[in-house]
Every structure is written in structure tokens, then in C-alpha cells.
Design a protein around this nucleic acid. Structure first.
Lengths: 132, 132
DNA sequence: ATCGCTATTGATAATCATTACTAATAATAT
DNA sequence: ATATTATTAGTAATGATTATCAATAGCGAT
């Protein structure tokens, strides 16, 4: 009895291609919109399902944003994000997240830390400019 | 024209008391259960509303956990959390979060960072023990 | 190429956490 | 006490995500 053999489909290819070529950390809905340009019949459910699979396989990273839909990131290594509370934009942050995880391991001793979600919230330069 | 004068109610007092005396980072639902012991007629909506208000006033801290209901914390200063992926338990982590925020500010330069959500995920010692 | 098996899809319903709405209640100033 | 209106309980609505299921389409074997 074999394990479930994965199949390659147009939808999977296109959804992965869209995420890997996006630099704005798109939401599932945004990915949906972009995939639809090439495959007008895709369903939102498929986008969610495939994104989840890609994240589980480690080909893509899911970023959970408090109070907002999840975003998807082509960069899979542990790194931190900045979320603008005005416009919702998500950006990568130049900070050594691996070092933070190591410090956390020292700080808690017994638990096995597998992943880190590090999100900074505030106002991005663009919104700061516009609001004053 | 005065600003809306806040009123003190049994519900608000009890909800705040429950969070401030809880050490397990309860969810709104858990707070609801505990408040009901003293006020059997409270509604879940009131618990959510009051918790939100307390968080906005900075009397309590809301912790957004990816893929799980939000938790509430009596410790309001910036600090990190560990979430067990097996049992869902949330614990404080002994790590200098303020230092991390400072590093992030250096790392991104222009944005105004107001808050940080730092969550480590993994398996807690208890679950590690039980699963092997 | 064709066939058969079944992973995958599109469409839609369901779920879950949370918020919004509303008439009734109760906290405060007078 | 009374009037005012913030707050509540109860319930409906929302938004993101997941589950369901019949129909479709990869892919390995013929």
C-alpha cells in the first residue's frame, strides 16, 4: 500500500508561481486575484487548500497577522516582519531572527522551540508622511 | 459637550479581576467560564467587549495566537510567549523583548515601531514527556 | 493512445472567533 | 428619587478559513 501520490496540476503550479513572484506578502484573497488572471476558473477554496499544502511542505511561509487575514511569503527561513497599522502593508525586517530564537531557547530551557512568529507593529514611513 | 463618562459595573470589575488573577493566559471563552461562577448571567459578548476595552486602556494585554483564539495576559509590558502546538498552553518566556524591539528599530530604520508580538511555537516539556 | 484509479478541483455549506445590533437594564449626576 | 444614557444580555451578522461532495483530470499500467 503506497502513500498518497501527489499530482501536479495547473492550479498548484500557478498558485506557487504567484507567491514566489510576489514581494508584497499577499493574502490568500490577493493570491486568488492574481491566479485568476491566468486561470479564471480557480476557486478561492483551492487557493486556500493549495497554500496550506505549500506551507506544510515548507515551500512557502504563512505569516499570521493579528486581526487580519494571513499573508504568504516566498521567504521560508525564520525572519521577522513589520506590519503597518494604518495601511496593513507587511515588510521584511532586517533582524537576526535565528539569534532571537536561540536566546529564547536559553530563556526557557526545557521546551522544544520549532518556530518563531515575530511581528512588529507600528506606522510605516509612507503613512507617517501622509498623516502629518 | 462632555466625553462619554465610563461607568463601573459588576461585569467589568469581575472580568478584570479574573484576568488579573489568572496565570494561564485564558481565552475570552475561558474568562467567560470563570466570570460566570460569580455572575451566572454574563454574556459572552460582554466578556469580549470588556476585554477589548481593558486591552485598549492598557490594563490587560491581548496575545494573538496563530490559528487559535486570542489569549489575555495580566502582564502588560512587552514580553515574549511560548505556545505548545500539542496542548495549546501559553507561557511567558524569559527573554528581553525590549532589547529585540530595539534591534528591530535599528534593523528597519524609518518605521515607528509601537508594539511587538513575539511568539515561539513548539512542544512543551509535559507534552514531550507524554508523547514518547 | 486508452483505461481505471483516485487525487484534486469548483461550488457551496459549515465552522469558528469575534463584532454589531437592539431593546431592556442599571450607574451616575442632579 | 429621577432623568440620562452607558452598559448589558441575547441574538444576528461578519469575515476568514475549512469541510463536503459530486465532477474532473493527472498519471501509472495496459
Amino acid at each position: 500500500m503506497r502513500e498518497t501520490a501527489k499530482r501536479q496540476t495547473r492550479q498548484k503550479c500557478e498558485i506557487e508561481r504567484v507567491v514566489l513572484s510576489s514581494c508584497d506578502h499577499p493574502t490568500a484573497e490577493t493570491v486568488f486575484g492574481r491566479v485568476r488572471e491566468a486561470l479564471p476558473a480557480v476557486s478561492l477554496g483551492t487557493v486556500y487548500r493549495v497554500l496550506k499544502g505549500l506551507a506544510e511542505e515548507g515551500r512557502v511561509r504563512e505569516i499570521a497577522v493579528p486581526g487580519a487575514p494571513a499573508r504568504f511569503d516566498k521567504t521560508t527561513g525564520t525572519h521577522a516582519h513589520f506590519v503597518c497599522e494604518k495601511c496593513g502593508a507587511v515588510e521584511d525586517i532586517g533582524i537576526d531572527a535565528a539569534e532571537i530564537v536561540k536566546a529564547a531557547c536559553r530563556g526557557c530551557g526545557e521546551a522544544d522551540i520549532a518556530e518563531a512568529d515575530i511581528i512588529f507593529r507600528g506606522v510605516c514611513p509612507k503613512c507617517k508622511e501622509e498623516n502629518k
